[in-house]
Design a protein around this nucleic acid. Structure first.
Lengths: 240, 240
DNA sequence: GAGTGGTCTAGACCACGAG
DNA sequence: TCGTGGTCTAGACCACTCA
């Protein structure tokens, strides 16, 4: 096996990890300042900071500039359920869920024209969406619907999927893992070194027309996506 | 809009990014040493290293201790196709694919007994699997099959899925994003700060028995997963 | 303004790779 | 052995938060 070389920052990170999981530092609590911790562990501040960076990447610690390092709240993992065509429903939540949405109409930028297969400069209804559990954000979504398919929506209108779900014929979801952009990290209140799940969902109707495209971003430490495929059993004769 | 604060390391990273994408530094090539680059940009080595760390997280640069920083080969993105019940087939590859597999028989450890829903200490056939495109690894897989379902496999036996696919009734795939473990980073030759897609696939037969469990790890910069759901159209009369 | 984290420096010393 | 990256130090100075 590998001898991971007990570097100081790993040892410190390990110690802090234990102190967090053992409840010595509680959720939401502020850690001692970096200077204090550096003194306590007799290392330089840079070394101490690199130890904290490890915990940040694991989602255990949140740094707030000018204010301190905080223990993140325990991750109540949510599940995005694929195939259903609805966002953030089907999640298993243990705390009150809050949702905010902002609806606007935009001219389709180039990356969306190809995704939605619509002409350049055609109008789209854009819903920018986020879900929160308490104060901590859970997901970030940009949903696009061709404007003629979503008539009469006021800015405060609720999300669309339900209204068009009956017409859907196919949902295609592309999933990738990456680090968040700076904007995403800020919006989700995660470290730039914490991986996110990025989902691109395209729903088409029976005629092959794209009725909805959604770009979702979920923090990797508290969300995953679940896809269930029921296969047609190969019993000859009875189909389904 | 946000003022991203032009820190030196971001400026340097941006410059190197351009030099890589413009072909000034070519794929596989070694960059000048960190000391040389630090001198060229008139920054300290630590600052230069933090600039390189950004590129590492994007998968643009691979560091090899004692040897140098190398431009990674352009990412030929592969696609894992969900629902099919087979690994790494259905990928769109632009270069020769190599596969290595190692088959052993093990006693189910606890985390697998729950996943496969088998008794403690029951025997599993384990296939450890990896795919390469040229010299760069693409995926890492651990596949587990109850031993009685996979009889007579020699250590050099090919992967199993094809042989049992006809019996499958349901495939469930759970996807998450995270940073790789140290072992995974080494095996995939990626930076510890490059996100990976982690898939857990459980296949069950018509009787509800788990016939295969697979743990897959794919580097986030060159792989994503695709799930297609065809919905039963709601033509009244037939109640789904 | 006091205290926090963020960036950066100019080194030292260690560990690894290849000749 | 020598050149490479990896870890770490002991600071300086800046940017942010909050009373």
């Amino acid at each position: 096996m590998i001898r991971p070389v007990p570097s100081r920052r790993h040892a410190i990170a390990e110690d802090l990890r234990h102190q967090i999981s053992s409840g010595h530092f509680k959720a939401g609590e502020r850690l001692p300042s970096e200077a204090q911790l550096a003194t306590r562990y007799t290392v330089s501040t840079s070394t101490l900071r690199s130890a904290l960076a490890l915990l940040q990447g694991e989602g255990l610690v949140e740094k707030i500039h000018g204010s301190g390092n905080f223990v993140r709240h325990p991750l109540s993992r949510i599940t995005y359920t694929g195939g259903a065509g609805t966002l953030a429903t089907g999640t298993t939540l243990s705390a009150p869920l809050r949702m905010t949405a902002r609806t606007t109409t935009i001219e389709a930028p180039s990356h969306l024209t190809t995704l939605l297969n619509v002409p350049t400069r055609s109008l789209l209804t854009e819903v920018i969406f986020s879900t929160h559990e308490g104060r901590t954000p859970h997901s970030l979504a940009h949903i696009y619907v061709p404007h003629d398919l979503a008539p009469g929506h006021s800015p405060a209108a609720p999300p669309l999927p339900d209204q068009i779900a009956v017409r859907l014929a196919e949902v295609q979801e592309r999933v990738s893992a990456r680090l968040p952009t700076q904007e995403e990290a800020t919006a989700l209140r995660i470290s730039p070194s914490l991986a996110v799940l990025s989902l691109t969902r395209v729903a088409t109707d029976a005629a092959g027309r794209v009725v909805e495209a959604a770009l979702l971003v979920l923090p990797g430490d508290r969300a995953d996506a679940l896809f269930t495929t029921r296969l047609v059993t190969e019993e000859r004769g009875s189909k389904e």
